[in-house]
Design a binder for these strands. Structure first.
Lengths: 233, 233
DNA sequence: TGACTTAGTCAATAGCGTTCACTAACTTGT
DNA sequence: ACAAGTTAGTGAACGCTATTGACTAAGTCA
């Protein structure tokens, strides 16, 4: 369960792997690394095998399908996001911290995030995050059903926005031509049909997506603060 | 460019297809239908061919890759979202309407939405939407760079949240076991470790995601209203 | 009519996830 | 210590996928 960068076994060719060589954690770690290096569609059993110096089909002794590996990757990202988190004194700061942690983790592993952020892991790390969020909402004064609604608003928002940004970054990394459409294509053939686009065409080019994220988080949190039962910020 | 439900050509076997039989629109329409019926990974060239009564490879005369088809599907969803839209008197109502339109379109075609909502089409329909949003922001008093930032906040938010909900719905439709984790798995082995989860375990089960979305849209729009240069609601 | 263009077809290819029978390393009971 | 049993890793095979290039025939135009 440690998942620190253990020295990967050299992909020695031909030799049969030792018996305890593979493990769920080792496979998950390799999967994240492969997604980082090879992008969105880079995660294949063949590559996993090569990376771990094992047969491609060896993974099936630890996972029963590719999707199960992805779920484990999702849980690993959740773990990386929550590890080291300590609640702040203000529940607003806690939620802001958690939101930024998700963003940063997804930014570090865009391809892994893109493939997994919409999956529910049901694992212990997910529970840790859910509990941390609910704790902050409890501090804000929400209880029961109301707390659950706020929880879903917050978590759907954080996962969706961070995750879909990761998906766009990962898409860009593939160089799949879809990427830089923003820069190139916003010159409509008939500008007079799209007056407002034409008016800000230049500004549309440069975007700092994290700044946009910060603005969205601020918007959500200030709306939550305005509705929170406990007035004590 | 009409894309109404034209009577699909009967998948006549063996016969060669007439010359003008295929078109980009017919293929896109078939693709959406296939995604609706067969779910997330259901869109294949083989199925497209069968659906249209054509050879699987015939698509390559109209699109140069699978991804190009998906981009066209994305543009079709944008078209369905924006078609029939008329700006409201209040810019807030306009933005709310556009947000709900995206949600409803994505809900009608969850698999298609899940595969395409993070793609930028660069097509005319996308421009129509961008212009509509910028028009509302203009009415609110934003100009230039500030308008662009608000635009990105709004559009990122709407696409991400509606889209990732569609992805979850589509995932559920596959019956891939990940789906109903919410209902089943939120019984931690050691409840004392997750006190807040345990406290609301029952309430976590039932979620009306549209209600959550409405709450999020309200939060964003009220935050925007508070910052809008033009005070005239 | 004959040359040309092009939409649809057919066969082939490389890569994918997954399955299954097999093998060899380790564990356990005596 | 040795036999029996379990199981992690292997290698060959299968069916499905997107994509390609050569072929064919329908249509256009001089």
């Amino acid at each position: 369960m440690t998942m620190t960068n253990e020295a990967e076994p050299a992909p020695s060719k031909g030799r049969r792997l030792q018996r305890g060589a593979l493990s769920r954690d080792a496979i998950v770690s390799a999967a994240v690394q492969i997604l980082d290096e090879h992008g969105l569609n880079g995660l294949t059993f063949a590559r996993l095998g090569k990376q771990l110096g094992a047969s491609p089909t060896a993974m099936y002794r630890h996972f029963s399908s590719r999707e199960e590996i992805l779920i484990a990757v999702a849980d690993e990202l959740v773990r990386q996001s929550i590890d080291g988190y300590v609640p702040a004194v203000s529940w607003l700061d806690s939620l802001r911290d958690l939101a930024y942690r998700a963003w940063r983790t997804f930014e570090r592993h865009p391809a892994a995030a893109a493939q997994t952020y919409h999956l529910l892991t049901g694992g212990p790390n997910e529970l840790r995050v859910v509990d941390a969020i609910l704790a902050a909402l409890h501090q804000a004064g929400w209880r029961g059903e109301a707390a659950v609604k706020q929880y879903h608003m917050y978590s759907q928002f954080v996962l969706a926005v961070s995750g879909s940004h990761a998906a766009q970054v990962a898409q860009d990394d593939t160089g799949s031509s879809v990427a830089s459409t923003w820069v190139q294509e916003y010159r409509p053939a008939r500008p007079e049909d799209y007056p407002y686009v034409s008016a800000v065409r230049e500004e549309l080019r440069s975007i700092d997506f994290f700044e946009v994220y910060v603005g969205l988080v601020d918007a959500l949190l200030s709306a939550m603060a305005a509705q929170a039962p406990a007035a004590k910020e």
